[in-house]
Amino acid sequence: MVVKRIVVCLLGALLGGAIFLPFLFGEIDFWRLSNHEEPIFARFRAAAADGGTMWYEGFGYDLFNMYAFVDGQISKCTVGPAIHYSTPIHIVSDHQNVKIQDC
């Protein structure tokens, strides 16, 4: 009976960790990009040819550090981080902290 309770607790902790860790890691990396620091948990995947957008991939999320021209305006750029979660359960919705500024 005690062994069964321990196994159930361990499985619950593993499942809870698998659900919450992507959101915890994603929010930490999003906060770091918002403060002009490199992400800790996500790895660099690619740089876009749109002015400097960087794409990072984490465990259950994609992180973008955007620096792209605004449509039709070469003098204005969209700058800032954006995050997209690719987990089946969404605890935190996708969000971004971008602003439009002069290039």
Rank of each mutant, 00 (worst) to 15 (best):
M1G: 14
V2Q: 09
K4E: 12
R5C: 14
I6N: 14
V8H: 09
C9I: 12
C9Q: 12
L10M: 09
L10R: 03
L11A: 13
L15C: 03
P22W: 03
P22M: 05
F25W: 04
F25Q: 06
I28V: 14
I28T: 07
I28M: 07
D29Y: 04
D29E: 03
F30S: 00
F30A: 04
W31Q: 10
R32H: 04
L33F: 00
S34C: 07
S34R: 13
E38P: 09
R45K: 14
A47D: 08
A48W: 07
A49P: 00
T53F: 00
M54N: 04
Y56H: 04
Y61S: 01
D62T: 07
N65H: 08
M66A: 07
M66I: 11
G72W: 01
Q73R: 13
I74R: 10
S75N: 11
K76W: 06
V79N: 03
V79F: 14
G80H: 05
G80T: 12
P81F: 10
P81R: 06
P81E: 09
A82P: 05
H84A: 08
H84D: 10
I89F: 13
V92W: 04
V92P: 06
D94G: 09
H95W: 11
V98S: 00
I100F: 07
D102H: 07
D102P: 01
C103F: 02
